[in-house]
Amino acid sequence: MDILYLLIPIAIIFVACALWAFFWSVNSGQYDDLESPAHSILFDDDEELIPDDAKQAARDAKVKHDSQQDG
């Protein structure tokens, strides 16, 4: 179990690094808005990245889905 003498200090160094990174991210304003990032990930605004063939299929599925909902 002597390995603990090595592992625990390493863990503490990791914690220190994590805290440093955390402080840096807070100070650079990444925590100023705690609401919108949670929503923005859900907005599929990446349509130009979808290959055209896949896009069409997705559209059709969506139209079908919509009309079911409307009905």
């Binding site: 863990a11 914690v15 994590a18 805290l19 955390f22 807070v26 100070n27 925590y31 100023d32």
Partner: peptide, 21 residues
């Protein structure tokens, strides 16, 4: 207020990480 909020988040982070360890 802005500074207060950042400080509070930093404190919360330190306490959270410390708690887990």
């Amino acid at each position: 207020l802005e500074q207060e909020k950042r400080r509070a988040i930093r404190r919360l982070g330190v306490a959270g990480v410390g708690l887990m360890q």
